[in-house]
Amino acid sequence: NQASVVANTLIPINTALTLVMMRSEVVTPVGIPAEDIPRLVSMTVNRAVPLGTTLMPDMVKGYA
């Protein structure tokens, strides 16, 4: 099973992502692959992402 990116904290809308905000976890449904974490750093989220939420491609500006 592939690990996905999961919010390690509440990420407010329009926040630039940092490494400490994200962790990898095997979850269903599958979200952004964990190997993309380095690429996500400094990208911003377009909605509030609660703790434990899987990051989906449409949640990160410029990812999809």
Score class of each variant (00 low, 15 high):
Ile32Phe: 03
Ile37Trp: 03
Ala34Gly: 09
Val20Gln: 15
Pro57Glu: 07
Ser42Leu: 11
Met59Tyr: 13
Pro50Tyr: 08
Ala34Cys: 04
Val45Tyr: 00
Val27Glu: 02
Pro57Asp: 06
Asp36Tyr: 12
Thr44Trp: 06
Ala3Glu: 06
Pro50Arg: 07
Val60Gln: 01
Ser4Trp: 03
Val45Leu: 08
Val26Ser: 08
Gly52Tyr: 05
Leu51Asn: 12
Ala64Thr: 14
Val6Trp: 02
Asp36Trp: 11
Leu19Lys: 10
Leu10Glu: 09
Val45Asp: 00
Ser4Lys: 01
Pro50Glu: 15
Ser4Met: 02
Met59Cys: 04
Ala3His: 12
Ala34Trp: 11
Val20Phe: 15
Met56Trp: 07
Thr44Gly: 05
Pro33Leu: 11
Val26Thr: 08
Ile32Thr: 01
Met43Lys: 08
Val60Asp: 02
Pro12Asp: 07
Gly52Ala: 08
Gly52His: 09
Ala7Arg: 02
Thr9Ile: 08
Asp36Ile: 09
Val49Pro: 02
Leu40Asn: 00
Pro57Lys: 07
Ile13Thr: 08
Pro12Val: 05
Leu40Gln: 00
Asn8Cys: 06
Val41Asp: 03
Met21Ala: 05
Val45Ile: 08
Gly62Trp: 05
Arg47Phe: 12
Ala64Asp: 06
Gly62Lys: 08
Ser42Phe: 09
Leu19Tyr: 09
Ala16Thr: 09
Ala64Ile: 10
Glu35Leu: 12
Asn8Val: 13
Arg47Trp: 07
Thr53Tyr: 07
Leu17Gly: 00
Thr28Ser: 11
Val41Ser: 04
Val27Met: 06
Gly52Val: 02
Ile37Ser: 05
Glu25Val: 13
Asn1Pro: 13
Pro33Gln: 06
Asp58His: 14
Thr18Glu: 09
Arg23Cys: 04
Gly31Ile: 02
Glu35Pro: 15
Ala48Thr: 14
Val41Lys: 05
Met59Lys: 02
Ala34Arg: 07
Ala16Cys: 04
Met21Asp: 06
Ser24Asn: 06
Thr9Phe: 06
Val5Lys: 02
Val27Arg: 15
Thr15Tyr: 08
Thr15Ala: 13
Gly31Ser: 02
Ile32Val: 07
Val60Ala: 00
Pro33Asp: 06
Asp36Asn: 13
Ser24Gly: 11
Leu17Trp: 02
Leu51Lys: 09
Met59Ala: 08
Ile11Asp: 01
Ala3Lys: 14
Thr54Asp: 00
Ser4His: 00
Arg23Glu: 04
Leu19Asn: 07
Leu51Asp: 09
Leu40Ser: 00
Gly31Arg: 01
Thr54Arg: 03
Thr53Phe: 12
Ile37Leu: 14
Val27Gln: 04
Ile32Asn: 00
Val6Tyr: 02
Lys61Glu: 15
Met22Phe: 05
Ala48Asp: 13
Gln2His: 14
Val41Thr: 06
Gln2Asp: 07
Met21Gln: 08
Leu40Lys: 00
Thr15Leu: 05
Ser42Lys: 08
Leu40Val: 05
Gly31Asp: 00
Leu19Val: 13
Pro38Cys: 05
Pro38Arg: 09
Tyr63Met: 05
Asp36Gln: 12
Leu51Pro: 09
Ala34Gln: 06
Thr53Gln: 15
Pro29Asn: 04
Gly31Ala: 03
Val20Met: 08
Glu35Asp: 11
Leu51Phe: 11
Val20Ile: 10
Leu10Cys: 05
Asn14Ile: 03
Thr44Tyr: 12
Val60Met: 05
Gly31Phe: 03
Ala7Ser: 11
Val5Ser: 03
Ala3Asn: 06
Pro29Val: 06
Glu35Ala: 13
Val26Trp: 14
Asn8Thr: 09
Gly52Arg: 04
Thr54Val: 10
Met59Arg: 03
Asp58Phe: 12
Met59Pro: 02
Gly62Tyr: 10
Ile11Glu: 01
Ala3Thr: 15
Gly52Pro: 00
Val5Ile: 10
Val20Asp: 14
Ser4Tyr: 03
Asn14Gln: 09
Val6Ile: 13
Leu19His: 12
Thr54Ser: 05
Asp36Gly: 07
Val20Lys: 12
Val5Trp: 02
Asn46Tyr: 15
Leu51Ala: 13
Ile32Gly: 00
Glu35Gln: 15
Pro29Ala: 04
Ser24Trp: 09
Val49Trp: 03
Val60Trp: 02
Pro33Ala: 10
Pro38Gly: 10
Val30Gln: 15
Ala3Val: 09
Val26Gln: 12
Leu17Pro: 02
Ala3Ile: 07
Ser4Pro: 01
Pro50Gly: 13
Met21His: 13
Glu35Tyr: 15
Met59Val: 13
Pro57Gln: 07
Met59Ser: 06
Gly31Glu: 00
Ser4Phe: 02
Ala16Val: 14
Pro50Trp: 06
Leu55Glu: 02
Val20Gly: 14
Ile37Gln: 05
Met43Glu: 05
Leu19Asp: 08
Thr28Asp: 14
Leu55Lys: 00
Ala7Met: 04
Val30Leu: 15
Ile13Gly: 09
Val60Asn: 02
Leu17Ser: 00
Pro29His: 04
Ile37Met: 14
Leu55Thr: 02
Ala48Ser: 14
Thr54Glu: 01
Val60Gly: 01
Ala48Glu: 13
Val30His: 12
Asn46Glu: 08
Lys61Ala: 15
Val6Pro: 02
Gly62Ile: 04
Ser24Val: 14
Leu40Phe: 01
Leu10Val: 11
Thr53Glu: 14
Pro33Glu: 04
Pro33Arg: 08
Ala3Cys: 04
Gly52Phe: 04
Pro38His: 13
Ala16Tyr: 12
Arg39Lys: 08
Thr18Asn: 08
Ile13Lys: 11
Ala7Glu: 01
Thr54Ala: 06
